[in-house]
């Protein structure tokens, strides 16, 4: 199994869990499998073209998958995938 760390903004998709387990041989497959287990998950992580959303980085262990092979990056049992929103902020409130 692959451990996937979920940031707070996406936890409504995973029944509030900060970590879920997933399966797949690539990051893309893992996302599809998580979407089957948590309907709507993929839509929050990927845009309409299927690309990772512009405010999110996906790390395999400590490396951004953009520096590997993106959604084709192979994953294996015991890997840790972190979904990490880039820094943001707001003026009021």
């Amino acid at each position: 199994m692959i451990t996937v760390r979920i940031p707070t903004p996406l936890r409504p998709m995973t029944e509030g869990k900060s970590e879920v387990e997933g399966k797949g041989t690539t990051i893309g497959e893992l996302i599809d499998q998580l979407n089957a287990a948590h309907p709507g998950f993929k839509d929050r992580v990927c845009d309409e073209r299927g690309e990772i959303r512009r405010f999110i980085n996906v790390y395999l262990n400590e490396e951004d998958i953009r520096f590997l092979t993106g959604k084709d990056t192979p994953v294996k049992d015991g890997d840790e995938v972190s979904i990490v929103p880039a820094i943001a902020g707001g003026t009021h409130g």
């Binding site: 980085n57 951004d64 953009r66 943001a88």
Partner: peptide, 16 residues
């Protein structure tokens, strides 16, 4: 005007 969201890819490239 009232908020910002960093481009995740640029942030990651800078970190690298």
């Amino acid at each position: 005007d009232v908020a910002f969201q960093m481009d995740a890819q640029e942030m990651s490239l800078a970190q690298k």
